[in-house]
Design a protein around this nucleic acid. Structure first.
Length: 963
RNA sequence: GCUGCUGUAGCUCAGGGGUAGAGCGCCUCCUUGGUAAGGAUGAGGUCAUGGGUUCAAAUCCCAUCAGCAGCUCCA
């Protein structure tokens, strides 16, 4: 009695593969020119203390199947794994326990490695890396120095060495220091005062996601937005390149769209509005003063006509960006962001207190809060007016937080008639609405729009727009912009939503910046900085007494001793940069390092880079759709511009695996008397609590599967079918207690079953709930495969008697070749669930056969191998082979074996199936119709009606139309 | 609010203008000396709803409904 026992088989084969280096990456230079390379990459995990969850092996199994399949087809495969090991949880653990993050991180990596090996993935473990390795982050720092040494030549759209940056004569004249500062202002890595979420109580800067309602998510302490000197990366320079590069990539359309939208290119115009000095707030709009305001405005216009549109607006004009310059005549007020630099000049003394209060309130809101949901519009009047360059009308300038400082010019012209936000604001503050675009006549709100009572954002015909009346939106856009540009009042402009990347963190557990700040004789920074010389990399983390925050918005590394902090170089004293890099840094380029992981001389050997890049297949979660994938592409393009890599895009094909949810849960509701309440009666109150329609407080109760039954669309209580209950699968989480642990699944079912189940659940990209019974199902399949080969009744391990050395009969041959074809095509298309279903059909068929030709079983095992590698190795060995099945060539199917000598096809009469007939698969249409008409039941269906049309589709069906 | 995806057996999902499919679950029968028992049968579907195109629609088109996911003051 020898049963299939994965717990014994699997570790044995894992040791075999390791001992024999079965999956070591082949040396491509020795492989010959006609051998294809395939770089198959998983998004590497953050090694959390919880270990793998069942979501990880989904993508990993998919890439493992692709890799094993490719090897079997003779390709050279690079399939590596590593760890994204810097990260907040380890640091927080360190703050709590005092244990160095390195210690916990290593423990977690060891655990992840054990789990990954337990699942039998064919990684080349010789290439494993962690972003926390000094030998790795040395090169992360090196790339940062490349960014620091690069400026973007926007003319040529290419990054170039800073030494090639042309220095303007007036800067040159000011000396070396001025030149250095000018260069600093153009580097891809630069420092700037960015607004950060500072929580004094927690003593730390928080990410936007960690701030809720202006308070810290942890502890609920107030968070204030303060400017802090931060490192930024000029990713916005690469906006156009990042957009262009997307086109050629084989990525899911949704991900591409997300990146397009995130970069958010728009085009329009920048327009200057003349700001009149010293106009009293209430008088400006009155008739008499309007005339008085005209004098300086006319002079300003004359000056502009002569000088042209300046690169900076200056203090006498307010510059706005608009995508709808055609609506300029409809601008009835202006809005500046609370952080706008001109604000102090705009605010009149009588308004100062009110504006200051408003700005203070705005400073507590994160960008996320300011841009989230349908918020009520707020704002205050500054007291100042500006003059509309199109018609010379004076309009008020407001400050409101719906205008963001970081986009466009931080100020807008408000056209309430044609912008939903402006309209909402105008309604709230009773500002005039002037329609200047006539919508199509059939627009349902046509009359309201023309009366200024509704907002219309689409295109139409210009009205109330002076000489432009009657022209289309596009015409007005072009002509008005051109006319204003000629007068020096506007210029065409392109804007991106993408912001520069805030690249520094006030954290301990990250890569130190390889940057030194020059100190003067008194130990104060001079403002001059330099990179750490390449031969002194890596800059390692200092040893610290403890990891606790110290209450000031300074990074923990500032607590380091002077022998780390202070550096002397070329006779000058420097202080090290004490910020660290964000977790994204290490993951931006790890795919390059796998190619040449042990190189101490350079990031990557150029020859190896050229042969292996780009990554052919990249698999990971969609949560990285924007950030990681955009950051990586950006770094890659910089490295490309500087000649360190040879392909413009790193990831040729991207596939997102879907999320795996917990098991489906049934939820019912009961009132205070424990009486069940149907879900139709359940509402949520303002706090999100469940209440009944008539206002009673309800309690949710978890129901067991056997307490409910299906009824119509949903589920109801078995005990009372009038009570509907909720059925839903939830995201796995510790708090919900529905996390499935791979260790347990492997213990109970085996790694091959886990792998196979994860692939059989549904399409790779789909979100799908875990069903533990389903694992038992695929385990049953593997048991049947075992019994196809092994005599389970015998006391020793031996082949079962049905395995014979004969040829397949016709049907077996057809099933075998259908299986080869389906598994080959589906594996190629990464449609793993359907490939598995076909293999199940194969095993069902051969289980029923009293004679199972050995050759057919062997071929089947080769097909099964990428999916269930341990079991297939074991049975392969049992069938008498000494070599690993992983080295077997992939089978080919024979078209001739696929066809049946006779097939059954349906005969329809007026589209309804009336009979089935047997014909040869290559029967002609006439032969098919003849056979159909010869059938008795067909003749009966036709009766005495007349056949008016005969349709025959060869190999498929016959349809007779009768009257 | 916008965008995208999905509605096929009790569950999880294939398929896709021409015979309604798989696995699990379920029913019945048979086998069994071993810890996940095995084997054989069978039941079960108005392919979300309503229109349209067609000889023929689950499939293509339009609308509606339901569910899920993502984005959201970007001027």
């Amino acid at each position: 009695m020898v049963r299939y026992n994965p717990n014994e088989i699997e570790p044995r084969w894992q040791s075999y593969w390791e001992a024999n280096q079965t999956f070591a990456t082949p040396d491509l230079s020795k492989a010959g020119d006609d051998v294809a390379k395939r770089y198959v990459l998983d998004m590497f995990p953050y090694p959390s203390g919880d270990g793998l969850h069942v979501g990880h092996p989904e993508g990993y199994t998919a890439t493992d199947i692709v890799s094993r399949f490719a090897r079997s087809r003779g390709e050279c495969v690079l399939h590596p794994m590593g760890f994204d090991a810097f990260g907040l949880p380890a640091e927080e653990h360190a703050i709590r326990t005092g244990e160095h993050p390195r210690v916990q991180t290593q423990r977690n990596i060891d655990n992840f490695t054990r789990q990954l090996k337990m699942l039998g993935f064919s990684y080349d473990w010789n290439r494993v890396l962690a972003t926390t390795d000094e030998g790795y982050f040395r090169w992360t720092q090196w790339i940062f120095l490349v960014l620091f040494d690069t400026w973007f030549d926007s003319e040529a759209q290419v990054g170039r060495p800073i030494a090639e940056l042309p220095i303007p004569a007036e800067v040159q004249a000011q000396g070396e220091r001025a030149i250095e500062l000018y260069r600093d202002s153009r580097r891809l890595a630069y420092q700037d005062d960015a607004l950060v979420n500072w929580c004094a109580k927690l003593g730390t800067v928080l990410a936007n996601e960690e701030v809720v309602d202006g308070k810290s998510e942890v502890g609920g302490h107030p968070v204030k937005r303060i400017p802090l000197r931060q490192w930024m990366l000029r990713i916005t320079d690469y906006s156009e390149r990042l957009l262009d590069g997307l086109e050629e990539l084989q990525w899911p359309a949704g991900i591409k769209k997300l990146q397009y939208d995130w970069i958010g290119r728009s085009s329009g115009a920048e327009v200057d509005f003349y700001l009149q000095p010293g106009v009293p707030s209430d008088a400006a709009s009155s008739e008499s003063d309007e005339g008085a305001a005209r004098g300086p405005f006319v002079a300003w216009k004359r000056e502009r006509a002569a000088s042209g549109f300046p690169s900076e607006a200056g203090s006498d004009a307010l510059r706005v960006y608009t995508t709808r310059p055609d609506t300029l005549f409809g601008a009835t007020y202006m809005v500046v962001s609370p952080e706008h630099p001109l604000i102090d000049r705009l605010v009149t003394p009588d308004r100062k207190a009110e504006v200051d209060t408003y700005r203070e309130q705005a400073s507590f809101k994160s960008d996320r809060e300011r841009t989230e949901g349908d918020l009520e519009k707020t704002g205050v009047f500054t007291g100042s007016h500006a003059i509309n360059p199109a018609d010379g009308r004076s309009i008020p300038v407001w400050v409101a937080d719906y205008v963001l400082a970081g986009y466009g010019t931080g100020a807008i012209m408000a056209v309430p008639a044609h912008d939903a936000r402006d309209f909402e604001f105008a309604v709230a503050f009773d500002l005039p609405v002037i329609p200047v675009v006539d919508p199509p006549n059939d627009h349902p709100q046509h009359d309201e729009i023309l009366a200024g009572q509704a907002c219309y954002v689409a295109e139409g015909i210009a009205i109330h727009s002076g000489d432009y009346d009657g022209q289309t939106t596009d015409e007005v856009k072009a002509k008005l912009t051109a006319s204003l540009a000629e007068q020096g009042l506007a210029c065409p402009a392109v804007n991106y939503k993408l912001r520069d990347w805030l690249f520094s963190r006030q954290r301990f557990w990250g890569e130190p910046f390889p940057i030194l700040h020059e100190l003067d004789a008194d130990g104060n920074p001079t403002g001059i900085k330099r990179g750490v010389p390449e031969d002194q990399l890596p800059v390692t983390l200092p040893e610290l007494e403890d990891f606790k925050p110290h209450g000031r918005p300074e990074p923990p590394l500032a607590k380091a001793d002077d022998d780390w902090l202070i550096v002397e170089l070329d006779g000058k004293r420097y202080r090290r940069e004490t910020n660290t890099m964000p977790q994204w840094a290490g993951s931006c380029w790890y795919y390059l390092r796998y190619i040449d992981p042990h190189n101490t001389q350079s990031l990557i050997d150029p020859e190896l880079e050229k042969t292996w890049m780009p990554v052919d297949l990249y698999v990971g979660g969609a949560e990285h759709a924007v950030l990681h994938l955009l950051y990586s592409r950006f770094w890659h393009k910089v490295l490309y511009d500087r000649g360190f890599v040879t392909c413009p895009e790193p990831f040729q094909r991207l596939v997102n695996q879907g999320m795996i949810l917990g098991e489906v849960e049934f939820t019912g509701y009961v009132d205070s008397d424990k009486q069940p309440v149907s879900t139709q009666q359940v509402r949520r109150d303002a706090e999100g609590n469940r209440i009944s329609k008539d206002g009673r407080q309800l309690e949710t109760v978890r129901l067991a599967e056997e307490d409910v039954q299906k009824k119509g669309e949903g589920f109801v209580l078995k005990s009372d079918p009038s009570i509907k209950v909720d059925s839903r699968a939830f995201k796995m989480s510790k708090t919900r207690g529905n996390v499935v642990n791979p260790d347990g699944v492997v213990r109970d079912y085996g790694a091959d079953s886990l792998r196979l189940y994860e692939m059989f659940m549904g399409p790779l990209e789909a979100t799908k709930p875990w069903v533990m019974n389903g694992v038992g199902g695929v385990r049953g399949f593997l048991d049947r495969v075992w019994r196809l080969v092994v005599d389970e009744k015998s006391d020793e391990l031996r082949l079962c008697d049905a395995v014979v050395d004969t040829d397949c009969d016709e049907e077996q041959l057809r099933v075998l070749h259908q299986t080869i074809r389906k598994v080959t095509e589906d594996t190629e298309a990464m449609s793993f669930n359907t490939a598995i279903a076909k293999m199940m059909e194969f095993s069902n068929h051969f289980t029923r056969c009293e004679q199972r030709p050995r050759h057919a079983l062997e071929t089947f095992l080769v097909l099964l191998n990428p999916y269930a590698p341990h079991l297939s190795e074991e049975l392969w060995r049992l069938l008498g082979h000494d070599e690993s099945i992983a080295l077997q060539p992939w089978p080919q199917w024979d078209e001739a074996a696929l066809v049946q000598s006779s097939i059954e096809i349906p005969v329809q009469v007026n589209g309804k199936v009336k009979a089935k007939i047997n014909v040869s698969p290559d029967a002609t249409q006439d032969q098919m119709i003849e056979a159909a008409l010869a059938s008795k039941s067909v003749a009966g269906s036709i009766g005495d009606k007349k056949v008016v049309k005969k349709i025959a589709v060869p190999g498929r069906m016959v349809n007779l139309v009768v009257k």
